[in-house]
């Protein structure tokens, strides 16, 4: 069983988030970074699957500038076998399709049985990366897994649906699965793990080598939500209220 876990480094939940001078992203200098929390669960799931099987390989893959080596090391310290660093220079890519193309280019020759991603990243929160990669690699794909069960050549998954509903699905490997937080109890790197991680291999691939063109999306402007006191409570008869809402949508917000 060969498993890739895509682990992103994102600003910590407590971190200050000042916006950079160009207003295009946060000022990374004053941000404290952590492993994207859902990815932490994905990593744990990969390690549990490997330990359950008794053999296999877990590869931590992360894209970003040099700083992301830290989360790769953390993954290795927890028990992953090797790492791949897709190195970005300059501002980080935020377009999910572009990101997925880069990962696909790196993952395709490795023939992984399983590609695990977090449900979504805490910074951009798009949640598409895993699905797009699955599609481009032409393998089974599912999102929002809260339980996994591997049997020979197949994976059975419990998926979280809306309003407390769950769904069991089963399909053949290889597969790309995005993992929901809370499905296991992530471990902490032991001291032995930390020491051992130093000797494990991290392969670096530069984004420029990958030769992927064209963005579908780019970030125009990042800003702090403006608080304003524009609120109107609409009560009274339902019909009158609906009329009032439609009017607002038409003439004030101009969306219909």
């Amino acid at each position: 069983m060969k498993i890739a876990v895509l682990v992103k480094q994102v600003p910590g939940p407590e971190s200050a988030l000042p916006i950079n001078d160009h207003g295009t992203w946060v000022d990374e200098e004053s941000v404290t970074f952590v492993m994207n929390p859902p990815d932490n669960f994905a990593l744990e799931e990969a390690l549990l699957i490997k330990e359950g099987k008794g053999d296999g390989e877990v590869v931590v893959v992360s894209m970003g500038p040099d700083r992301v080596q830290k989360v790769i090391r953390e993954g290795l310290a927890k028990g992953a076998d090797r790492g791949i660093h897709i190195e970005e220079v300059g501002p980080i890519e935020k377009d999910p399709l572009h990101i997925a193309k880069r990962f696909t280019a790196v993952l395709k020759d490795e023939n992984f049985d399983l590609v695990l991603t977090g449900l979504q990243s805490d910074d951009t929160g798009m949640g598409q990366t895993g699905v797009l990669i699955g599609e481009m690699l032409g393998i089974s794909t599912a999102t929002l897994a809260v339980e996994t069960d591997i049997k020979d050549g197949h994976i059975r998954l419990k998926r979280e649906l809306e309003s407390g509903w769950f769904q069991w699905v089963e399909f053949p490997l290889p597969a790309s699965i995005s993992i929901q937080s809370g499905l296991n109890t992530p471990r902490y790197p032991s001291l032995k793990g930390i020491m051992g991680a130093k000797k494990k291999e991290i392969k670096t691939v530069s984004c420029t080598e990958l030769d992927i063109s064209s963005n579908c999306q780019s970030v125009d402007k990042v800003f702090v939500p403006q608080t304003s006191k524009h609120s109107e409570v609409i009560d009274g008869e339902v019909d009158a209220a609906v009329e009032r809402i439609v009017e607002i949508l038409k003439s004030e917000i101009k969306v219909i």
């Binding site: 109890t185 992530p186 471990r187 902490y188 032991s190 001291l191």
Partner: peptide, 10 residues
């Protein structure tokens, strides 16, 4: 638990 086992409450 922490240094050898790596088992730490979340």
């Amino acid at each position: 638990e922490v240094l050898v086992e790596g088992r730490v409450p979340q």
